[in-house]
Structure formats: structure tokens, C-alpha cells
């Protein structure tokens, strides 16, 4: 625990000192996206990796966070911290609601419901004129950001803090009795229940936390782009990446989604710059297929095969 805390502080200090090393704004612009994917992938893994309940609609949870923040910003000019809290609360509630409706049933019903929710919510936002509807809405960035070189650098730091928080939460869960309960659910739900595991409560808790973290990742999105519109906010890209990153990195350990997010996130940034962002989903899809077939336990699994004695 202590080692992890020191590591977390070191990461934050590193994030804060980045502006001393990199003066190119693009580094922070791209770094933000990678950090955002760390949050999304880690959040997805809490329910999908540990408990085995697959969320296909991560984009919707992300978007609910983003639009909650935008609506509150427009109405009350809430500061970013409160926007993030509100976005997390709204998406956490969405996770809880979808969970209440479907987590009593077999896992496939939850997965289908997440797809349905994504479609319904996108339609709602398309027709919600207060936040710009289909046309979108420009968001004014604050003119000044104290202590930080630019607003992008500030957002980069905020997302780094969220990533540390998300990974810390996932790691806590993984190494505690909660994580053991979630794994028991994934392995055999009936046996878990008969071993005293309150399966419904644990799944609801995981769905709520997972949703909340995705919402938190989405909340600063409009400020980051200075703009918001439904098509890119609800993009399939989020849903695909949120599950591809943990699968490719490795789902059993908290570092897996981080590895997957850094790798896939960076590859996609490079592809976006050198070719076009249009083919990102294709790139991720191909990598996903390759891993599922050749290395179903992800990069961590490969690593364990290479160094079998090491227990991680």
C-alpha cells in the first residue's frame, strides 16, 4: 500500500513537471487522451475483467459524464472539480440503474442493455437543444489557468490525477476481499453465492463504481475540445477501446488495462497524426482479434509465460 502511494505521488509529480520537459502543446493534447483511456480501461476492467460482466456501452457512460458537466457548466458555471463530481455521480447512477434492471439475469442481458442504453441516450442528446443537440455546442475555456502553462496542461494534470485515482481504486478492489468476491462471481456465480458472497450487491457496486469512473473521464471532455457534439462523444471508439485495452493488456491485474491503454492509446495517436483517425477503430479491432486468438491473457499473460517464476 505504502509503495503504491509513493508510486502514485511520483506519477502525479511527474505529470506536474512535464511542462518543464515538453514545451510542445501537442504532447499534452495527446497525453490527455492516453490518460483518459487509462481511466476508461481501468473502469471497464472493474466490472468486465474482475466480475466478467461485459459493458459494450462505455461510450454512453463517458458521454453522460461529458454532457452532465456541460449542462451544469452552462447553467451554473460550475468549476471543473464539481463538474467531474457531477459527471461521475450521473454515470454512477446510470451504472446502478442498468445494473438493477439486468444484473439479476445472466451476463449477456447486462451486455445487451449497455448497447441499448448507448443508442437511447445518444438519441436523447441529439434532440436536447440546451446542450446543442446534433449541431453541438462551443465551450469557452477559462482565459487564465493559475499555476499551469496553459489550459491543456491543466487538463492533462487533472486527467493524470483521475487516472491515479482510478488505478488506485481498482488496485484496492483487486487485492481486497471485494476482488476475491468479484472473481468468484466470474468463475462460478452459483458457487460464489453459496459461499456467502452477496453477488447482486457486489455486481451493483462494481457497476456503479465503473460507471462513475467513466463519467469522471468524460466530464472534462468538452473543455478539452472547447466544443461538444454527440457523434464524437458517443463514439464507438470509446466502447471498443474501453474493452480492447484491458483484454490486450491483461484483465487479471490492475496494471493490465494501464499497459493496454498506454500501448493502444499511443498507437492511435500516431495513426491519427500519420494516417487518419478514421482507421483507429480498425487498428484496434485487428489488434483485438490478434490478441484474443494468439494471447487470450493479454500482454501480462505473455509476460508470465516468459518469466514463469515471477508472481505478479
Amino acid at each position: 500500500m505504502k509503495r503504491f502511494l509513493i508510486g502514485a505521488l511520483a506519477v502525479l509529480a511527474l505529470a506536474a513537471s512535464m511542462p518543464l520537459i515538453f514545451h510542445n502543446e501537442y504532447f499534452f493534447f495527446a497525453g490527455y487522451v492516453v490518460l483518459q483511456f487509462i481511466v476508461l480501461a481501468t473502469a471497464w476492467n472493474i466490472l468486465g475483467g474482475y466480475a466478467g460482466y461485459v459493458n459494450f456501452g462505455s461510450g454512453a457512460f463517458f458521454a453522460v459524464g461529458a454532457y452532465t458537466a456541460v449542462a451544469l457548466y452552462k447553467a451554473f458555471a460550475l468549476p471543473l472539480g464539481l463538474q467531474i463530481l457531477a459527471g461521475a455521480a450521473a454515470s454512477g447512477l446510470l451504472g446502478f440503474g442498468v445494473g438493477m434492471l439486468t444484473l439479476r439475469l445472466r451476463g449477456i442481458f447486462f451486455s445487451i442493455a449497455t448497447i441499448a442504453v448507448a443508442i437511447v441516450l445518444e438519441t436523447v442528446v441529439l434532440n436536447w437543444h440546451y446542450v446543442g443537440g446534433a449541431k453541438g455546442l462551443p465551450i469557452m475555456r477559462p482565459v487564465e489557468t493559475p499555476f499551469f502553462a496553459s489550459h491543456t496542461v491543466w487538463l492533462f494534470f487533472v486527467m493524470a490525477a483521475l487516472a491515479v485515482l482510478a488505478v488506485g481504486a481498482a488496485r484496492y478492489i483487486e487485492t481486497s476481499w471485494i476482488g476475491r468476491g468479484l472473481r468468484a462471481i466470474r468463475d462460478n456465480e452459483v458457487a460464489a453465492e453459496c459461499s456467502g458472497v452477496p453477488t447482486l450487491k457486489l455486481k451493483l457496486g462494481a457497476a456503479t463504481l465503473s460507471g462513475a469512473l467513466m463519467g469522471a473521464a468524460g466530464a472534462p471532455y468538452a473543455q478539452y475540445l472547447s466544443f461538444i457534439e454527440p457523434a464524437s462523444t458517443f463514439s464507438l471508439n470509446y466502447a471498443v477501446n474501453a474493452l480492447a485495452m484491458p483484454i490486450i493488456g491483461g484483465m487479471g491485474h490492475w496494471i493490465g488495462p494501464v499497459i493496454g491503454a498506454v500501448l493502444l492509446g499511443s498507437v492511435q495517436q500516431i495513426v491519427t497524426v500519420t494516417i487518419s483517425s478514421e482507421i483507429n477503430v480498425l487498428v484496434v479491432g485487428v489488434m483485438l482479434v490478434v490478441f484474443v486468438v494468439a494471447a487470450p491473457e493479454g500482454i501480462l499473460g505473455l509476460f508470465r509465460k516468459l518469466f514463469p517464476s515471477r508472481k505478479s
Binding site: R180, G181, R183, A184, R186, D187, N188, V190, A191, A192, S195, G196, V197, G252
Partner: peptide
């Protein structure tokens, strides 16, 4: 119905 991803000891820990 073992918890297949876990060791024998962990099965009992649940």
C-alpha cells in the same frame, strides 16, 4: 463448481 482461476487455498478463502 470450483473457482477455476483461483488456487485451491483461495477457493477456501472465499
Amino acid at each position: 463448481r470450483p473457482f477455476a482461476s483461483m488456487s485451491v487455498l483461495e477457493n477456501l478463502l472465499v
